[in-house]
Simulated assay, not measured.
Amino acid sequence: MVPISIDSFVNKHCKSNPAEEPSKLKKRIKEAVKDKKNGASCFNCNQEIWAIGSAVAYQGCFSCITGEADASEDYEIDEVCWS
């Protein structure tokens, strides 16, 4: 995964999604980061959650949220990024 700060992700996401409320997204991301740090697992497969995806969808891993296996070019919040 590609590390990104919360603020950078919020700015990038809201630029592409102008209807998104930045402060609400930032709050959801912070909650998902906290959950991930506390060991939250995917609702479907029990793998480690993807903080960014879990802030937008429900607590899930990258594969369950996107249906893809390769996360090498996708973002994850830097403070919980594993690569």
Rank of each mutant, 00 (worst) to 15 (best):
K12G: 06
K12A: 07
K12W: 03
K12N: 10
K12H: 07
H13M: 10
H13I: 01
C14I: 01
K15N: 04
S16E: 09
S16R: 12
N17I: 02
N17K: 04
P18C: 02
P18Y: 02
P18Q: 02
P18K: 09
P18G: 00
A19N: 12
A19L: 10
A19Y: 08
E20I: 06
E20T: 11
E20Q: 09
E21M: 11
P22E: 03
K24N: 11
K24C: 13
L25H: 00
L25T: 00
L25C: 04
L25N: 01
L25V: 05
K26F: 08
K27Y: 05
R28E: 14
I29S: 00
I29E: 08
I29N: 01
K30P: 01
K30G: 01
E31M: 08
A32H: 00
A32K: 01
V33P: 04
V33L: 01
D35Y: 15
K36F: 07
K36C: 08
K36H: 07
K37Q: 12
K37E: 14
K37Y: 09
S41C: 15
S41H: 15
C42M: 12
F43D: 13
N44I: 11
C45A: 10
N46M: 07
N46P: 06
Q47T: 14
E48A: 08
I49G: 03
I49Y: 09
I49R: 01
W50T: 10
W50V: 05
A51I: 07
A51H: 09
I52E: 12
I52K: 00
G53Y: 11
G53E: 11
S54C: 06
A55V: 15
A55L: 09
A57F: 13
Y58L: 11
Q59H: 12
Q59C: 05
C61F: 04
C61N: 14
F62N: 12
F62Q: 07
S63T: 09
S63K: 07
C64M: 03
I65K: 01
I65D: 00
T66D: 08
G67Q: 13
